[in-house]
Structures are given as structure tokens and as C-alpha cells.
Nucleic acid binder design. Structure first.
Lengths: 149, 149
DNA sequence: TTGCATTCGGTACCCAGGTACAGGCTTACC
DNA sequence: GGTAAGCCTGTACCTGGGTACCGAATGCAA
């Protein structure tokens, strides 16, 4: 179906393997998330093989609530051999942010577990004596973009 | 500032305390995330005091990558005293989803830690022998809405 | 009871993240 | 060389999640 020595994957191949729309590849290229790939003589894009993995990273980070700009930052941070102080600080900030997300997810998870076990009257108005009412305690850390404009 | 015996909080009070726009409250009401509050004789909304906490829950869940529809589901699940089998299964599914998110966040966190420690050459193309290259392993679980249309 | 701040409903608009379509060129295979 | 499938650029459109603005009505304090 395809000769393995070809210079790269075609748009359609990458899109199918990564489960994204072809248009999305071009969109990510415009947004700077994907580097401009090489081209065939006729102008068709030829992607390196690891593009599919990269797309999975992007999609996963998105599902976790990072914006495309943030994903670009994450990837950028990851691409330097020895991060500049700026990038280093950025990474440290991201770690704190991620820790907060994990804590909140854990709280929600606990609440749902209570639901499954049917131990709570209600997640939002619980009368159990031993219930931490986790839903009401999550999000106590201010959001990273904590503006009140 | 306000008499404590009043029947509820006004739109502006809730919005300010929760750090959201007034329009957002009405939007959430339309979306079914907030129940229709009682009204004053003149038709102004009067919210119960726990609305602010509920809004914090909603905002937090959103930051974690849940859509408003999903948040509505989560809240719905949490409001039943004894969940129906359907809701129960929904909660179980959500828990699995949350576990996947936590795993992915943990992987990203590990990658960022490597960056901060400057132990890796690159997150996406690392030559360290002991590097798990976490960025390339996240997202291995299919997304919850795993469609390929 | 006057008057300013708030809220009302309704509609229009905004941004992020995609997705679709048109019309023309490339690729690949017979 | 013909031809179908695939890809090109460009532009227009869509969905989710809000925001802004309008003129009218309400709340509330002096």
C-alpha cells in the first residue's frame, strides 16, 4: 500500500492514524503546534513519523483542560535541552497547576465513589456525618488565570 | 450591607462572590446547571446561599476539562439520594475517565519535572537512557468520546 | 416620591477550536 | 496517457462557552 522508504507520511495518513481531521493538521500548523513539514515536489506535505505521537500528546493535554497556547508552551518547554530560567519557571508553575488539577480530580473522584456506594444523601447537600462533601471543597485554590475583572 | 434575613442572594451578589459574570448565571440557568431560583415579587432572582459553592464546583470541573454538559451530568449524579443503575453506571464511567486524566496529568508532571531538573535532552525526542519519555506515553487510553467520524 | 443602582428579558456579538467547501493541482496505478 | 483519489490554498461556517448592550422595570434609601 505504501513503500516504507518514502520521505514521510501524507496528510491523510497522519490524520487517520491520529484520529483527527485533515483540516486540523493545517490548523495546528498555523497555530505553531506542528512545525511546517517538508513537501513533495508537487507541494504535498510529508510528515515525520513521530507526528502521530505528537498529535496524541496535544489531544491528551487538551482533554486535560489546557488551551492550545498552553499546549504549545508545554511542548516548547520540552524541546529545549537545557531550559532557560524563564522556561524553567514556567515548568515549575505548570507543575503547581497540575498538582491542583490532580487534587481537584481526586476530590471529584471521591465524590463519585460515594455516589456509587450510595453512602451520601447528596453530593451538594449531604447529611452524612462522615462525609467530606468533596464537591464543596474542590477548587479552593484560585484558578491559574485568577482575574476578577 | 445586606440584611441577613432576606430571602436569598441577588444576582450581583452571587456573581461577585463566585467571580463570574452576571450573564453567566443566566446562561447556566438556561443550560440547566443552575436551578431556576425563586423570584422577588418584582421578578428579580433570589439565589440560595449555596449557589456560590455550586458555581465554584462548576468552574473547577470546567478547568479540569469537563464540558458543561458533563458537569451537569456530574451534578445530576450527585443530587440523587440513591442513584439509579443508569446514574450509577455513569458515575463509574466518570471515575474511569477521571483516573485516566489523573494518570495523564501525572505523566505530564513527570515530564515537566525532568525539564526542571534538566535531565532530559528533550521531552519529545529524548536520548537519556533512563528517561521514560512520558509525553509520548500519555493519552494511550482512548478518549471517552472516542469517535472517528 | 424621587432617583440612582440593579436586574429584567432579548438579542447580538465575541473568542477558541475546529470543520466544510470550492476549484485547481498531484499522485498513483492501469 | 488517462483517470480517480488525494492534497493544495483560501475562505466561510459551526459549536461551545460565554459577554455586551438595549430599553424597560424593580429595589431601596433618603
Amino acid at each position: 500500500m505504501m513503500s516504507p522508504e518514502r520521505a514521510g507520511l501524507r496528510t491523510g495518513e497522519v490524520a487517520e492514524q491520529a484520529g483527527v481531521n485533515i483540516q486540523t493538521l493545517r490548523y495546528y500548523e498555523r497555530r505553531g503546534l506542528l512545525a511546517e513539514p517538508t513537501r513533495s515536489n508537487g507541494g504535498h506535505r510529508l510528515y515525520p513519523a513521530d507526528t502521530v505521537a505528537l498529535l496524541n500528546v496535544i489531544k491528551t493535554a487538551q482533554r486535560l483542560g489546557f488551551t492550545l497556547d498552553e499546549v504549545a508552551d508545554l511542548l516548547d518547554a520540552g524541546r529545549r535541552r537545557h531550559p532557560t530560567p524563564d522556561l524553567r519557571q514556567g515548568a515549575i508553575d505548570k507543575i503547581a497547576e497540575i498538582d491542583a488539577k490532580i487534587a481537584d480530580l481526586t476530590a471529584i473522584r471521591g465524590a463519585l465513589t460515594e455516589v456509587v456506594d450510595a453512602r451520601c444523601d447528596s453530593l451538594t447537600n449531604c447529611t452524612c456525618t462522615d462525609c467530606p462533601i468533596p464537591f464543596l471543597t474542590i477548587g479552593t485554590a484560585p484558578p491559574p488565570d485568577g482575574d476578577t475583572t
